[in-house]
């Protein structure tokens, strides 16, 4: 039995004791998987597992608080669960975690660059080297580097870090290029004025839909976000890059030491604004200051949840 078939069996067994198991099913076209809430054993037949299972489903868990639920996890998704456990936003005893070793998921935005019109792709196939898309112009071959999410090329956690079921052999960490680092390096090399102009240009197409926020597993304020509060009134409704970038900074600050870099914020953006770089930058700062990466250990305390008089890497007190 393949690891996936084994997992399906485990889900069928567990379902009677659970409110639901969250996984994926085929979406509206060949390129889209979609989150799927399995409630009956027969639902499990529709469960899919492929490089198109892009969503981090842990984002749904806090809304099931107090109920027993199962969830299918990639390695990166499991970090979201761990972070939620750390922050006591979900209860471990109410979760059944079904992990699967993951060798990377597609970035549909990147695939779109190759396909032209992503909405006209009529079939998709993949192998270790890349993806093949059937388009009206004929077959388009997309190399792995140009097809997978950047995070996957250099993924250090291909297996769920916390799981009750983890069928199949664990996969080794990926050894590809760290494109996120390359992107950050390019941004950091820019003069501040140019960088600001670049962000203004990017943010000008933001439609303030807050998909970045709502897809984020760590954005737990949800209906009570400061971005939409009139009291305090931090953000105005002015349609300006300033207000929009300000929200990105609020989000980034709020994620300091909590962001698991799943990339859902950027993936969810309907106008493809490359906002993950801001979170990556903050994660790097947290790593340098606190030697900490979010979502690796459910017993750890996130650095901004604690206080140490003598922080090893904060030198200011010696000035």
């Amino acid at each position: 039995m393949s690891p996936f078939e084994t997992l399906k069996e485990k889900i069928r067994e567990a379902l009677p004791g659970l409110d639901c198991v969250i996984g994926w099913r085929q979406g509206f076209d060949p390129l889209h998987a979609t989150p799927f809430f399995m409630r009956a054993p027969e639902d499990v037949e529709k469960l899919v597992w492929s490089p198109l299972c892009v969503h981090n489903l842990s984002t749904y868990l806090p809304s099931f608080r107090g109920k027993k639920v199962g969830i299918v996890l990639k390695g990166c998704d499991s970090r979201g669960v761990i972070e939620l456990l750390q922050e006591k936003l979900v209860e471990r005893e109410n979760l059944v975690l079904f992990g699967l070793p993951c060798s990377g998921v597609a970035d549909l935005t990147k695939l779109g660059r190759a396909a032209g019109d992503l909405d006209r792709v009529s079939a998709v196939a993949w192998d270790e080297a890349g993806f093949t898309l059937a388009t009206p112009r004929g077959e388009v071959r997309v190399a792995r580097r140009d097809a997978l999410a950047d995070k996957c090329l250099s993924c250090q956690f291909p297996n769920a870090l916390e799981a009750d079921h983890l069928p199949g052999d664990p996969l080794p960490p990926a050894t590809g290029p760290d494109l996120g680092d390359e992107e950050l390096a390019a941004l950091e090399a820019m003069a501040p004025a140019d960088l600001m102009a670049r962000w203004a240009a990017e943010m000008s197409r933001c439609i303030r839909c807050y998909a970045c926020r709502n897809a984020c597993p760590m954005c737990v304020c949800r209906d009570h976000c400061i971005a939409q509060s009139r009291d305090p009134h931090w953000l105005s409704q002015e349609d300006s890059p300033r207000e929009k970038l300000m929200f990105q900074l609020i989000h980034t600050m709020h994620l300091a030491g909590r962001c698991v870099e799943c990339g859902e914020c950027q993936r969810a953006c309907p106008v493809d604004i490359p906002i993950l770089a801001l979170r990556r930058k903050m994660n790097r700062v947290v790593r340098e200051l606190f030697d900490y990466q979010a979502g690796l250990d459910s017993q750890a305390v996130p650095p901004l949840f604690t206080f140490q008089v003598e922080e090893a890497n904060i030198k200011e007190r010696k000035w």
């Binding site: 989150p35 303030r208 839909c209 807050y210 998909a211 969810a268 309907p270």
Partner: peptide
């Protein structure tokens, strides 16, 4: 169930 309640 799967809606994340954004405004896209």
């Amino acid at each position: 169930a799967k809606c994340v309640s954004c405004g896209a």
